[in-house]
């Protein structure tokens, strides 16, 4: 075990992946609690498909991937929020619409330009080799920003997540905070998706929150537990991926599934015993 960890840290690409991944896992789990509770679980999935399309376009035009995908995904996030709040197409339908449209555009883009090569496969399912030193700096600074914003606005985020109309009535500008959450989610997804893969990144958002909610009954406990779970599952996932040579993204998701099942069982046992917390 110790040897495995030692070996893990001897590869600089794994160290980079771990640094980026731990930060992304931390941030996405915090955002995830609000997104899951506000019934926006699929937003991560939708945005990552948009991210895939933008990467395909960037590749076709020979542009830097992040420069294209960050603005596109941020724009898509605002669009999603706007559609689901203001029109007759509600949240889940709006996300499904944008998600499949973006995927189709991405696939067409890939087909007419490069064809299905390893790059495309890496975008879909993630690659641990994708992390450059610039990504490390970007993800660490982003995560610090998200963390600070989350702590500063924690009480307001709780109020808006629990009851938006009450929050608005007490004078909280709920629209601004919803936009902030959408923006941060978009950034997190763009940074995380190249390692986790466009198809798997949303798991980092939903799993930790859902898992913690099985056992804990207070918001603070759910948030803290999600953060801890997300980071540890990521770490274990990468180690497993290294030890058994399986793709990193899928391996992290697998660890999350096991944790989810374990917590569901614990939650049920807790209910049976009657210590409802």
């Amino acid at each position: 075990m110790l040897d495995l960890i030692k070996e893990l840290f001897s590869y600089s690409f794994i160290v980079r992946a771990l640094m980026v991944g731990v930060m992304v896992a931390l941030v996405s789990s915090l955002l995830g609690v609000s997104l899951v509770l506000k019934r926006y679980s699929m937003i991560g999935d939708g945005l990552s498909h948009v991210g895939f399309a933008s990467l395909a376009i960037a590749m076709a035009l020979g542009l830097a991937p992040l420069q294209v995908s960050i603005p596109t995904v941020v724009l898509a996030a605002f669009l999603l929020l706007h559609i689901s709040e203001n029109s007759k197409i509600k949240g889940d339908a709006a996300i499904a619409l944008i998600s499949s449209s973006a995927l189709a555009i991405g696939v067409i883009m890939v087909a007419v330009t490069t064809g299905m090569n390893t790059d495309v496969c890496n975008y879909m399912f993630g690659s641990i080799l994708a992390m450059k030193i610039s990504d490390v700096f970007l993800s660490i600074s982003l995560s610090i920003v998200v963390l600070i914003l989350y702590i500063v606005f924690y009480n307001k985020i709780f109020a808006i997540t629990f009851d938006e109309s009450f929050a608005r009535a007490t004078g909280i500008k709920a629209g601004r905070y919803n936009m902030l959450i959408a923006l941060l989610t978009a950034l997190t997804i763009v940074i995380g998706m190249r390692m986790m893969g466009a198809l798997l990144i949303s798991s980092l958002i939903i799993f930790p929150a859902l898992t913690s909610m099985r056992v804990f009954g207070s918001f603070k406990a759910v948030v803290v537990c999600s953060a801890i779970l997300s980071v540890s599952c990521f770490f274990i996932g990468i180690a497993t991926s290294f030890a058994f040579s399986i793709p990193a993204g899928a391996s992290v998701v697998a660890v999350n599934i096991i944790t989810f099942i374990t917590f569901t069982v614990i939650g049920e046992l807790k209910k049976r015993v009657g210590v409802l917390a």
Binding site: L37, D163, I172
Partner: peptide
Amino acid sequence: QTVVQKDFPASVFEVVLSGCLTT
């Protein structure tokens, strides 16, 4: 009450305290 609140993990104290958030 909204659907969201039905399975919302929040302690009673957390909910009541959020009433103190005026501008």
